[in-house]
Design a binder for these strands. Structure first.
Length: 906
RNA sequence: GCCGGGAUGGCGGAAUUGGUAGACGCGCUGGACUCAAAAUCCAGUGUCUGUGAGGAUGUGAGGGUUCGAGUCCCUCUCCCGGCACCA
């Protein structure tokens, strides 16, 4: 055994050992319970970043821990290989997206392997390969025939200079990122997944996900946004062109009597109709169409509107209400029109003040007085309000007035109660090249015809030149010229590709049988491995990816992909009790049983002011930070020139701030175990992780101590000592006399080790790995204090060290495996049993309890473990500090918390 | 703007869920070893005050509940994630 810790050497050897044994190959043939551990697959950008290291280390810790706990673990890896960056790289470097992607995958696979992850690489899935996307196309054609996929027009960001659709991130301050042209909204036909048909099930399914963070479920609930309200129709007569009704949806029908105007979106038919006779209005509508489609922009822009000079009739009181066009009303939401109640909606209030529209109070709250001078919080309160100025509805509360108003609307045929979802259907058409081709053929005779099974996959041509303008496939006749599968006539293939969220919505299922050539998955293997027992990924995926994957799972279930009958679905008509039975987790309904969302990796930033105030960002690796004699930073200098630099904030590692740390550099210098230990130790998984070079050094130092201690144990083992003298000689104590203080008492050390192990088990259950790492440090600290001067000392040391290695094994597998074997604990720590707490070792005769006076710490006492309450009270009262504060008086009350404290109230 | 989080020493964080705030690590200070440095080891380290034992104070800000609050309630500030075409 080497006396020094040499990570490069032992990591290569351990990885070779696992490779030779095919240690991480997962098969269905096992009598152990299965554990499917999945980390979100990466986009193959070409370089591993710290976020990946963190994500995959967390997954690997869970996978290895469960293996030692006796599970048959499957941990796969693959590539989310379609997407925009490949096209951007093609533009920048003149490399075809396919070639760029495949070489990135090769580079990243090597990097991931150097981290020592326990991955079954035989299950690797690459989404840009036809054998994967073929089955996505297959599902598409089924869903198209079923009507789950349909076509409609929808708004996109249009760059009028490049004649290209832009992604939201390509729109910067309302302009195209490359052309700089002002972006406008343009309506184009797209394919949509009817996810709204599953809204109710997606909502109710959240109740079965006990293993998901409450935070994520709340975000999804709010995103789906089920609301209870009314649809209301405002009639108009032939005086404005032709007679009809304007339909709106509102969650506040109780305020209907306070409605003073209605507002429609710029794209609404009534708006177009009014614009025909008004150039000013037409100009305003054109202005509304300027800018991008991102919701955040729409919600933060200044609220603007214009009167159409049209009027509609209030359905209950017959008032004439003006129709306005407003930029904050969106055609894609609800009916594209809203009734405005300025007195009880903050947005309508602002709008009414700005355009001097009437504000009419229709809700009152006791003890509050209404004034239209300024908005007050209570105006929108629906719990405490009652109707006023509302005729026959006066003094009714929210529920009563909604019932009464809905009933009256229904009698008139002008409205009814309706539940509504905020969730919109999922548009998946992309006018891009590097994505999965949409398997549709457009025939002048037969319309949109799905590509027949025998013609799948529709293969994306990989030899191509990207220009950045327009859709490349639309310029390739050899791709789009085809014949109609139905009539055999000349036809045109669809040239749009699918949203890359489609590929990432079912990869978890494909991993169960990546080689299956007869369907999306092999039914038996999918049933064996699904659901994913533990899914790990960034919190930024809390809504979109995780919602789409849940949706896809249900689509596959209903298509019979898993080969089991679908479970009964929740339905409002089944009643609450019937639905209760569906609140238990069902692997056919939900793909991910447990979810862990990790925080981002952040790092300090440094910069200098360049010309014109432009900031030049400097990599932290090139900076020396000076501190005062207490360790507070007082300044920083650039190592290259010794001149000072500005210390910026701590931000997400990003190219734009030049504060990234290359994981490969850390692995090369310290080894994968150090990188893994630091990322686990520095913060709990769900929090942000601040990168810190000194902390990395600390992790490395700890592993060196672990190794050195192992070397010492090995020396004692090899010496085969038979007497106290020989133990002392072998462990290096020699003749030095030992005073057995509490920290060097063998029984106390053993107690400490088992106590820490107990806490570590608790922390592992909470998935709080930073304190598991600190538990390992505590165990080593305790063992180092115990002199090995006897057989008993050595037995406790060996037991403690075996616990330490097993605790470390999931986090730093290479060093743990190497030492496990060197010290003859066994051949393979992967299959070692997880250590058990010896409760007998924890027992103490005397315990320490705290004495408080009025809740303030005043001292402590060592008392017999089973002292009774009266004894404890007496002991507390006779305590010096308590006597002093009592000053001869008596205690009002004594609170005894068993095993913890006594609080004397005076 | 809307939805969801977060804030604890010089720094990352801990506190078994209302019971000793600051575990563990980093940094810093002093010491040992060394010709010296590195590495390693030992001791100390929230702040203020005191020679000292000690005392006061302290978990983003302000208020409240409680014998007792980092933890529960109310109000506010700042920071982060998402907002449907980045993945």
């Amino acid at each position: 055994m080497q006396p020094n810790y040499q990570p490069q050497k032992i990591e290569a050897a351990a990885q070779q050992y696992w490779e030779n044994k095919q240690a991480f190959r997962a098969t269905e043939a096992s009598d152990k319970p299965k554990y499917y551990c999945l980390s979100m697959f990466p986009y193959p950008s070409g370089k591993l970043h710290m976020g990946h290291v963190r994500n995959y280390t967390i997954g690997d810790v869970l996978a290895r821990y469960h293996r030692m706990k006796g599970y048959n673990v499957m941990q796969p890896m693959g590539w989310d290989a379609f997407g925009l960056p490949a096209e951007n790289a093609a533009l920048a470097n003149n490399v075809p997206p396919a070639a760029w992607t495949y070489s990135n995958i090769d580079a990243m696979r090597k990097q991931l392997q150097s981290l020592g992850l326990g991955i079954d690489w035989a299950r690797e899935v690459t989404t840009c390969k036809p054998d994967y996307y073929r089955w996505e196309q297959w599902l598409f054609t089924r869903l198209f025939k079923k009507g789950i996929i349909y076509k409609k027009t929808s708004s996109v960001n249009w760059d009028p200079e490049d004649n290209t659709v832009l992604a939201n991130e390509q729109v910067i301050d309302g302009r195209g990122w490359r052309s700089g042209a002002l972006v406008e909204k343009r309506d184009i036909p797209m394919y949509f997944f009817r996810i709204t048909q599953y809204a109710e099930e997606l909502l109710q399914g959240l109740d079965t996900l006990d293993g998901w963070p409450e935070q994520v479920k709340t975000m999804q609930r709010n995103w789906i946004g089920k609301s209870y309200g009314c649809e209301i129709e405002f009639p108009y007569d032939a005086s404005i062109g032709r007679a009809g009704t304007l339909k709106v949806y509102t969650t506040r029908p109780d305020t209907l009597m306070g409605a003073t105007y209605v507002a429609v979106a710029a794209e609404h038919p009534l708006a177009s109709q009014a614009a025909a006779g008004s150039p000013a209005l037409a100009a305003f509508i054109a202005e509304c169409k300027r800018g991008g489609t991102a919701e955040a922009d729409m919600a933060t822009m200044e609220k603007k509107g214009m009167d159409t000079s049209l009027f509609v009739t209030h359905p209950l009181n017959g008032d004439k209400l003006p129709v306005w066009v407003a930029n904050y009303v969106l055609m894609g939401y609800g009916e594209g029109a809203v009734m405005a109640v300025p007195a009880h909606d903050e947005r309508d209030f602002e709008f009414a003040k700005k355009y001097k529209l009437p504000i009419r109070q229709s809700i009152a709250v006791e003890g509050q007085s209404f004034s239209d001078a300024a908005w007050q919080e209570w105006y929108a309160n629906k719990e405490r309000g009652v109707c006023v100025n509302s005729g026959k509805y006066n003094s009714l509360n929210y529920e009563q007035s909604v019932d009464a108003i809905a009933a009256d609307l229904q009698v008139k045929g002008l409205g009814q109660k309706r539940t509504q979802f905020r969730l919109r259907d999922w548009g998946i058409s992309r006018q891009r090249y590097w994505g999965c081709p949409i398997p549709i053929i457009h025939c002048a005779q037969c319309g949109d015809v799905p590509v027949p099974d025998e013609q799948l996959p529709v293969v994306l041509p990989e030899k191509i030149t990207i220009t950045g303008a327009g859709s490349p496939l639309a310029k390739m006749p050899e791709f789009y010229q085809t014949t109609c599968p139905q009539c055999g006539g000349a036809a045109k293939r669809e040239t749009d590709t699918m949203d890359t969220f489609v590929e990432s919505s079912w990869y978890y299922a494909r991993y169960t049988s990546p080689d299956c050539t007869t369907g999306m998955v092999d039914k038996a293997r999918a049933q064996h491995w699904l659901p994913v027992d533990q899914y790990i990924g960034g919190i930024e995926h809390a809504i979109l990816h995780l919602l789409y994957a849940r949706f896809f799972h249900k689509l596959m279930r209903d298509e019979g992909v898993f080969g089991a009958p679908p479970s009964p679905q929740p339905s409002p008509t089944r009643g609450e009790e019937a639905n209760d039975a569906l609140r238990a987790f069902n692997p056919l309904d939900e793909p991910f049983k447990n979810l862990l969302t990790q925080g981002m990796v952040i790092a300090p930033t440094f910069c200098r002011e360049g010309e014109g105030g432009k900031k030049l960002w400097i990599n932290p690796a090139d900076v020396d930070v000076k501190t005062d004699d207490r360790g507070r930073p007082v300044g920083a200098t650039l190592r290259a020139d010794g001149q000072s630099v500005i210390i910026g904030g701590t931000e997400k590692m990003a190219k734009s701030k030049n504060n990234g740390v290359d994981p490969q550099a850390i692995i090369d210098q310290y080894g994968a175990d150090t990188a893994r230990l630091f990322t686990m130790f520095a913060a709990p998984p769900d929090q942000q992780l601040e990168w810190n070079d000194a902390g990395v050094e600390g992790a490395f130092r700890f592993l060196k101590r672990v190794w050195a201690f192992g070397y010492l144990v090995k020396q004692v083992i090899d010496a085969k000592p038979a007497s106290s003298y020989e133990f002392r000689k072998a462990s290096g104590i020699g003749e030095v006399s030992i005073s057995r203080s509490r920290s060097s008492d063998p029984k106390e050390v053993r107690r400490e080790v088992h106590l820490v192990l107990k806490q570590a088990n608790f922390d592992l259950a909470k998935q709080q790995f930073n304190t598991v790492a600190s538990a390992a440090m505590k165990i080593l600290n305790a063992l180092e204090k115990l002199p090995i001067a006897s057989q008993e000392d050595f037995a406790i040391t060996k037991e403690g060290y075996s616990i330490l290695l097993r605790l470390l094994s999931p986090i730093t597998p290479h060093i743990a495996q190497t030492l496990w074997k060197e010290l003859d604990y066994g051949d393979d720590i992967l299959n070692a049993e997880w250590p058990k707490v010896d409760e007998a070792a924890l027992v103490q005769d005397e315990i320490e309890i705290v004495i408080q006076v009025n809740g303030k710490l005043r001292g402590n006492l060592r008392v017999a473990k089973n002292a009774d309450q009266a004894t404890l009270e007496q002991l507390a009262l006779s305590h010096d500090a308590v006597q002093k504060l009592l000053a001869g008086g008596t205690a009002k009350k004594i609170i005894v918390v068993p095993g913890r404290l006594i609080n004397v109230v005076i």
